[in-house]
Every structure is written in structure tokens, then in C-alpha cells.
Design a protein around this nucleic acid. Structure first.
Lengths: 167, 167
DNA sequence: AAAATAAGTCAATAGTACTGACATAATTTG
DNA sequence: CAAATTATGTCAGTACTATTGACTTATTTT
């Protein structure tokens, strides 16, 4: 006779103690992400935008000239879902599109100065939280944190991480 | 004359270089969380549940006897938002309620064996991803990761983190 | 010229959240 | 004890983000 816990641990080939340890991490990821996005969400709400708008702003800022198809792949949402958000960002003058030079069917996405400003405000809030957290635990741990988060991403999707600057 | 970047950095009292470094982390948090929740989301979708159901299961499992009010505070959603999700979990036999012993107005939440099984399956998926990530970066980094995530949570809300076992 | 591709659009639906208003039962307070 | 407060539940209406499916337009490839 085994307990449910033991059975579950066996099935996943893990020690119960190790699994318990992960529960805390699972919970911490929830809380950390909730508060991490909270700052930006509040600012976005003031101008009638949501988290979806933020994601578009972030990735267009990160990689100016990104095409719609590339953005869809990163966000893992459908074209129709992106449509509304993108339309609002374009109508609001935050994002503009230019025809692709190589392929005129493509729409390359760019941030206007207004869009860049908003993105930087949002980034600033999140950056501040990160800076505080790093200060608390010791700045020299940054690389460990980066490595862990990278390792949490699906292997085949790690190519989506740019890894280098741009704000 | 200063660039927009420099102005933004000044305002937040941060070095541009440090800020650039944070952009990567911001992006990594997005990708890591997207894939971290992806495994469980897929399993939940099979039985017609969503991420909201998962959160309830997780916290009730973590702290059996949790009251509705306590759960609302943790999830930071409204009573009405929780209602649907909780009703579905109760109707499906995953969660049951008992009247509070001290205060009979309260409803203490508990997982049924079925609820516990489902929760453990979900936890198993996320635990596996964490185990793999830790293996990749070195298991001895677990404490650093925990410290960072804790430090990312709003100071006044850190009391919500249980810190100790229960699955 | 036909097929494929990139993007946009229309319509219907779902999941998660919100606000506001009100009901019920139980406890606390005056 | 009666009144106020609290914990929970519920109804109605709305918003945001997402989905699937079907179709259009412009452009490139075959």
C-alpha cells in the first residue's frame, strides 16, 4: 500500500522531498508573475490597454521591423486575436506598419516615438522591480536567474529569445 | 539634448546598461511563464477547465480548510469571478466545502480524492519542467531562484507565500 | 495563369475578469 | 434582544483576450 503522494512521485520518477520543494517554486512563480505584471497592467489600464497591447509593444520595440507572422509565432495567438490589439495600437498612433522591402505582402511593424515612450514607461516599472529584487538577493546572481528562466522555456522555442539589448 | 533612452534611465535612476540587462529578464519571464503554464493548461483543457480552476486547486491543496475570503485575497479576484470556477469544481466533485467550526458563515474548502489526484497530475507536469531546468543550471541554484522570485513579490503580500510543503 | 502566401476582416463563441445590486445566514455590537 | 456587520452566494450586464471558421485582397512563387 502506498500513499497518493508516493504513487505520484514514482510515476514522475522523482523523490517526494524534491517534489515538495518544487511546489514552493510553482507558487512563487505565480506570485512573482502576478506582481511583476501588476505594475504595468495598472498603467496600461489608464489608457484603455491591456496586457496584450503590452506584449505587442514589447516585441516590436525589441525587434523593429518584425512582421505580423513573426509576432504571431512569438505570442502564440491567432491572427484574429492579434488583429484587434494591433488595430488599436495603430489607431492610437503607437505602432505603424511599412510594406516589406523584400516582400511587399509583409507588414513590418515599428513603434512611433509615442509608442516608444509608452513602452519605456512600462519597461521602467518592470525594470525597477527587477532591480530591487536583484539588489535584495545580490546582483551577481543575475546570470543564474537568466539561466534558470531560459531553461524553463521549451527547448525548441528558445530561438525566440533575442538575448540582446534594445530599449 | 538627450536621447529618449537616457531620459528614461535618468528618471528611474538607473544606468542604461543595467536597464538593457533587465529587458532580457522581462522577456525571459514572459517566455518562461508562458511555457511553464502551457503544460498544465493543455491537461486542464481536456476536462474543460482553465487556468483559474488550476489556481483554486493549487491553493486549496496547499492549505486545506482555506476559506473563500482567504482564497479571494490570494487570487486577487472578485467573489463573482471565483463563483463560476468554484461552482464547477464543486459540481465536478473536485472540491467540497464544510461549514467553519468557529464561524459557521465561513466555508472551508477541501479537495476530494479526485481533486487531489488532478492537482497532483498538474503539479507533476510543472515539477518536471522545474526539475529539468534545475538539472540544466545546477541543482544547487534552487535557493537563489527561490530568493529571487520571493523578492519579486510585493513586500506586503509575501505573507501569502506558505513556504512549506503540502502535495 | 494557377497556386501559395501574408495579411486583413467578419461572425460566432468561450474563458476570465469586472461592477453593481441584492439575498441569506451567522456573528458581533450597542 | 435588535441592529449592524460579516461571509458567502447569486443575478445581470459588460469588457478583454482568446478561439475557430470562412472569406477577401494583394503579392509572390511555381
Amino acid at each position: 500500500m502506498v500513499t497518493l503522494q508516493e504513487a505520484a512521485s514514482r510515476k514522475s520518477g522523482m523523490e517526494p522531498a524534491s517534489k515538495d520543494r518544487h511546489i514552493l517554486l510553482i507558487e512563487l512563480l505565480f506570485f512573482a508573475y502576478r506582481d511583476f505584471t501588476g505594475d504595468a497592467d495598472a498603467l496600461l489600464a489608464e489608457i484603455g490597454f491591456g496586457r496584450a497591447h503590452h506584449r505587442v509593444l514589447h516585441f516590436v520595440n525589441r525587434q523593429p521591423g518584425l512582421t505580423v507572422a513573426e509576432l504571431l509565432e512569438i505570442l502564440r495567438i491567432t491572427k484574429q486575436s492579434l488583429a484587434r490589439v494591433l488595430k488599436e495600437l495603430i489607431d492610437g498612433g503607437y505602432v505603424y506598419q511599412v510594406h516589406g522591402v523584400k516582400d511587399r505582402r509583409q507588414r513590418e511593424l515599428h513603434l512611433s516615438p509615442t509608442g516608444r515612450e509608452l513602452t519605456q514607461s512600462l519597461t521602467g516599472l518592470q525594470s525597477k522591480r527587477i532591480a530591487n529584487a536583484l539588489m535584495e538577493i545580490g546582483e551577481d546572481n543575475l546570470e543564474t536567474i537568466e539561466a534558470f528562466l531560459k531553461a524553463m522555456v521549451d527547448q525548441e522555442l528558445r530561438g525566440q529569445i533575442k538575448g540582446e539589448r534594445n530599449d
